[in-house]
């Protein structure tokens, strides 16, 4: 087999991750709405039913609470389920199981039981599917002790985080931004598991730190390139893990650049960006040359028309302007 990198997409890398897990561990199975015959709402699991059969690629009724809870029960029973929910908005129908069961049983049972469950779900806006399919609620889940929350934003991460999540003894929720599925790039055929903990510096820079994750990462990298033509070198940090947060990487970057812009498609009030900002103020206040800045989703339910949807979340140009204003105040 050639070891030369080959062209692929985020969607294909996500599928390859599931395939590898299914081949490596007979306890692994995929369960969710339309993951089998339909091939997955975003075609991630296309072809897997034919390869692995109905027992392990399991179409479920539209019963989020029951099949997420069944995933928790199956994990308690020794299996390693991957539960796909069609969108983060639909996962709210399973919130009871995620928050009251998956996140509590290990602690509430005094450590007698673990819940090695993996959930995958699409998140975010950009496909003109309006206010019940487009929200970014991963920051909400990051509020809950007992869960691990990750957001793969690169081909390597979507290919590699799943196996590591399955090996983790805790419930891990993987958020895949809908705008990333078609992202193309090159991936080594030898690409394999990657850690699910820790942030990554995707672009080093000296003038400010842009902290982001998921679907906003490509936008931030594009903004950083544009800023560079203006003589501003932005460091772009991909959080990768939203719970736990990698405070050390964040603080070290802020100590170098002394300015920070947090970019989050989620809403500002009570959101993940507020948490990150507070931590920076608590831990690196005296390193800062300016107050932490935030660019977040506008506080509206995501609207349908493209111009309004685009204006609802950070875009490369608005990120560039916010960064520039931070480094070169008017």
């Amino acid at each position: 087999m050639s070891t030369a990198p080959r062209k692929t997409t985020y969607r294909e890398a996500a599928r390859e991750a599931i395939r590898e897990a299914m081949l490596r561990d007979p306890r692994v199975f995929l369960m969710g709405e339309d993951v089998g015959r339909y091939g997955g709402c975003y075609a991630v699991s296309k072809g897997l039913l034919q390869e692995f059969g109905e027992e392990r690629i399991r179409d479920t009724p539209l019963s989020e609470s029951a099949f997420v809870g069944a995933g928790i029960g199956a994990a308690l029973g020794g299996m390693r389920p991957i539960v796909e929910v069609m969108s983060v908005n639909f996962s709210l129908l399973a919130l009871d199981q995620i928050v009251n069961n998956a996140a509590t049983i290990p602690h509430m049972s005094g450590g007698q039981f673990a819940v090695p469950l993996v959930m995958r779900m699409p998140t975010g806006s950009g496909r003109q599917v309006a206010a019940q399919h487009s929200h970014s609620l991963e920051g909400w889940y990051a509020h809950i002790p007992g869960l691990k929350i990750v957001a793969p934003a690169t081909l390597e991460d979507v290919r590699g985080m799943l196996w590591t999540a399955l090996e983790d003894p805790n419930p891990v929720l993987i958020f895949e931004h809908v705008q990333l599925y078609n992202m193309e790039g090159e991936l080594s055929p030898a690409a394999g598991p990657v850690p699910i903990a820790g942030a990554a510096i995707r672009r080093p820079g000296r003038d400010l730190s842009i902290i982001t994750y998921g679907g906003s990462l490509p936008k931030c990298l594009a903004a950083a390139e544009a800023l560079a033509t203006d003589g501003i070198e932005a460091e772009v940090i991909d959080l990768r893990s939203l719970r736990p947060l990698d405070d050390a990487t964040i603080m070290a970057s802020v100590a170098r650049t002394r300015r920070v812009l947090i970019v989050d498609e989620g809403w500002r009030s009570g959101g993940l960006s507020a948490e990150i900002s507070a931590r920076i103020v608590e831990q690196a206040f005296y390193e800062l040359d300016a107050p932490p800045a935030r660019l977040c989703g506008v506080e509206v339910p995501i609207p349908y028309p493209k111009h309004l949807e685009d204006a609802s979340v950070p875009q490369a140009e608005s990120i560039r302007l916010a960064a520039r204003a931070l480094v070169r105040p008017a």
């Binding site: 029951a66 069944a70 009251n100």
Partner: peptide, 27 residues
């Protein structure tokens, strides 16, 4: 909760235990 007797709680959200049992049976 009691591991030796496979006793999975003690669940205090009314109805919340049913999906767990379905999953345990699935396993």
């Amino acid at each position: 909760f009691d591991r030796p007797t496979r006793f999975y709680g003690g669940n205090a959200i009314v109805g919340g235990g049913l999906p767990l049992a379905v999953g345990l049976a699935l396993a």
